[in-house]
Each structure stands twice: as structure tokens, then as C-alpha cells.
Simulated assay, not measured.
Amino acid sequence: MEKFTSLTGVAAPLKITNIDTDMIIPKQYLKTIKRTGLGSGLFAELRYKEDGSENPDFVLNKPAYRNAQVLVAEDNFGCGSSREHAPWALLDFGIRCVISTSFADIFYNNCFKNGILPIKVSPEDLAKLMDDAGRGANATLSIDLDRQEIRGPDGGTIGFDIDPFRKHCLLNGLDDIGLTMEKAGRIESFEAKTAAERGWL
């Protein structure tokens, strides 16, 4: 998993409450178990019209936000069914950080396991960040995970809380497999001991 230490990028304002996982990545894109290639389906029902052409009114289709790396979203982001394809699609599009007042638990946990930083902020701070994100080409936010700070385009900072273990995993690029491999020496030692003591296994 790619490490997340700091990020400076365009933030897109997504002024929709209760964005569920089917809205993030519609069910027709769930036929694959690959983590790549899903970016084209991200928010497909909002990004595209029925004829397949782009919806010019959707924020990620606007020139200033086509390469957004941060989403500033309304309450209860990632609700609905539990599908890991949702963070896969965000990551494949280029989104590394989602900021909201609240997240659905399963989506929130899946973000950390895939190298995306979900940040919870107060409604007051979200309003400030939504205003920052509304500046088009000037909508740049800087995220410092080690300091747990978000810096806006005018230099103001907002702090955020994060579980220390999850912070450690993101800073070091450790998903579940990575965490297991950190114990490779102990695992090999156990297997060697077991093979010597129980040769019939």
C-alpha cells in the first residue's frame, strides 16, 4: 500500500448528503476483483448522462476539479452496502483523502486499508473547507498526517483526530498483508520450530 504522509492537491466540493457506496461505484462495476480500472466508473450516474456523455454540471467534470485529490463531502459519506470497490474507485481516480463530518463505519475502515485518509471534522470546519474547495483552480488544500493538520489556501489550519494505530499504518504504507509481513521473522521461526518438533505435519 502506498504511504500517506502529506498531500497538497485540489479539493472538490461534493455538496450531497448521504452519498452511498452505490453512488460512489454503481453495481454494474462490481464484476471485477481488480483494484485498478474503476476510476472511470466513480460517481458514474452523476458524471455521465444516459447517452454516455459527460454531465458538465457534475463537479469532477469541471476543468478545475478533473484532477482533484481531495473530496470535501457532506454528512454520512460512504453509507449503504459494504463494498471495497468504493475506495478502490476513489483511489483509481486519484482521490487520496475524503473530508466529511461523518462516515459509514465499513467504508471508513476500508479507506485505511487502501491508503485513503478519511478525515472527520466538525460542521463548522466542514463549512470553511467547503468554501475553500469552492474556489475552483485555487481550491488547494494541504494535508499533513503527521501533524494532523489541514491547511487551506489562505494559510489557515484545521486540526483533526485520528486513531494512532491507523495513523501509523498510513504513514508506513501498511495494509493487513504489510502488517503480517512485519512479523515474517517470527512466522518463519515458528514454522521451523513446528517442522522440527512435528515432522509428520
Rank of each mutant, 00 (worst) to 15 (best):
S189D: 12
A133P: 02
I106P: 03
R147W: 01
K49W: 09
L60H: 05
I158K: 01
S102R: 02
K15S: 09
G178F: 06
G155F: 09
S53Y: 04
R35M: 12
L14K: 00
V10T: 06
R198S: 13
Y29G: 09
K31W: 09
S102P: 04
G41T: 05
A137S: 12
C79H: 05
V98S: 08
G155C: 11
D175T: 13
L170S: 04
T21P: 05
P56R: 09
K15M: 07
K49S: 06
K62W: 08
P118T: 13
R83N: 07
V121D: 02
L60T: 03
F103I: 03
L30G: 03
S102E: 13
W88V: 06
R47P: 02
G134T: 11
K34T: 13
I99L: 07
F112D: 04
I24D: 01
T157E: 12
K167G: 09
E149F: 01
C97I: 04
G159S: 14
G156H: 13
Y108V: 05
E74C: 14
A86F: 11
M181Y: 13
P123G: 09
K62C: 04
T17D: 07
N138V: 00
T32A: 00
T157H: 06
E84F: 11
D176F: 00
D125A: 15
S53D: 10
F112H: 08
L42C: 09
Q28N: 10
N114G: 11
F165W: 11
M23F: 02
D92A: 11
R151H: 09
T101E: 13
R66Q: 13
L129F: 01
N138R: 12
R135C: 11
E84D: 11
D161Q: 15
G80P: 03
L38A: 08
V59E: 03
D161L: 09
R35I: 04
K128W: 03
A195S: 11
R186E: 14
E197N: 15
I25A: 06
P63A: 14
W88K: 07
L145A: 06
R186V: 02
L179W: 05
V98G: 09
D75I: 06
Q28R: 15
L171D: 03
A68P: 06
L141Q: 09
P56W: 12
S81G: 11
K3L: 11
F103W: 06
E182L: 15
L90S: 00
K113Q: 15
I16D: 09
L141Y: 05
E197Y: 12
P87V: 04
T194I: 03
Q69I: 03
K62F: 08
L201D: 10
D163A: 00
P56H: 10
G199E: 10
S40H: 14
S6Y: 12
L91Y: 01
